[in-house]
Amino acid sequence: MTAITIRLQGCRKAFADGTVAVHDLNLTVEGGETLAILGPSGCGKTTTLRLIAGLELPDVGQVFFGDQDVTRLPIERRDVGMVFQNYALFPNLDVAGNIVYGLKIRGVSVRERNTRCDELLELVGLQAHGQRSIHELSGGQRQRVALARALAPRPKVLLLDEPLAALDAQLRERLRSELDQLLRGLGITAVFVTHDQGEAMALGDRILVMEKGRVAQLASPREIYQQPANAFVAGFVGNLNAFPVIEHSVQGLKVCGGELPWHQANRPDTVYCRPEHLRVMDGEGHLHGHLLAQFFQGAQSRLLVDVGGSQPLLVDSSDNPLYAVGAPIALAIAPHMLFTLNA
């Protein structure tokens, strides 16, 4: 089956209290693509997912699956599979019963249901769990059952709403990798909502960052991180250091703590960099300050360095040396790691 393209054309959704959840959204999700929708609470990401699912109708605009206008079709006629944060499994049914439930109400024969169930149990790594009660499963196992149930009818589109949010950090990391392999193996068009930046970066072919019901940026994970479209995206995805420019010079940009290398023609008011792009030097550097705090994080250390600005600089160092609080710190940065932002 050819993976289907999803298209939202001029979709707007407001609620009874007058709140506009989504403003005139134009969005295309390519066939076979995994799109992550990322943003803070109340930004419209879940409403966008519900518009695709058919759980919400747009006040204005249209939703297409391929060439078919599905705007007025309810969810049960859109051929979508959904995975929810709270699993939404039936506690009175065993694992196999949950997986084939949708097939049973569609009138699929017992033989076909059993065959499909065996396929899905193997797909999600639960071959020995078909007869187990839902109460006997761990959180990660329940999420796999929910995913298998969503995939059972072979949907055109898979929609996931915060699929890993209820899991602990270690399990979430492992299932993130498994889900990535599964989606790529299936080649299905998938859209998932998350507030977890790492999850969006790891799973999304592209990321849609939303702000107040609008598209802040739609791009690959690498572009989102390295070439953020504006200050909101840069600040929401990852950590950021800002350098207000005191003076422009021939050599670069004078800022608190020193002078940054800048060879571009434009003369910005502020430049930015990520914490991992600053390097601690033994002697000379572009910036000089002193250590406020150091936090050991395993593979790296996070340093807070005061260079005289309104906020300390965040520096991620993989060398992991141990500095004394108050120790002098010299920092350097490659010119291409500095960037400017739109408002």
Rank of each mutant, 00 (worst) to 15 (best):
L240P: 01
M201F: 13
R132M: 13
L137G: 09
R78K: 10
R184Y: 05
V237R: 04
G187S: 13
L292I: 15
K212G: 09
V215G: 03
D306C: 09
R116C: 11
P74C: 04
R78V: 05
L253W: 07
L57N: 13
L179N: 10
L57W: 03
D180K: 14
F296L: 12
P74T: 10
Q217Y: 08
R154E: 15
F339L: 06
L55H: 10
E223L: 08
E199R: 04
I224M: 06
I6A: 02
V60D: 13
D79R: 11
A169I: 11
L208W: 04
Y225D: 03
E199W: 03
V83K: 02
N230T: 12
Q227C: 13
L160P: 00
L171V: 15
L240S: 03
V157S: 03
L164F: 07
A330W: 07
Y225S: 05
V63H: 10
G139S: 06
P91E: 06
L292D: 13
D306H: 14
R77Y: 02
L151N: 11
P153G: 15
L103C: 08
T2M: 11
L240V: 03
G81W: 00
L160V: 00
I99S: 03
P268M: 08
V108C: 04
D168I: 07
F295H: 15
S317C: 12
G81K: 04
R50E: 05
A324P: 01
A128R: 15
D118T: 15
H277W: 14
N230M: 07
F243I: 06
H336D: 14
G97M: 05
P244R: 12
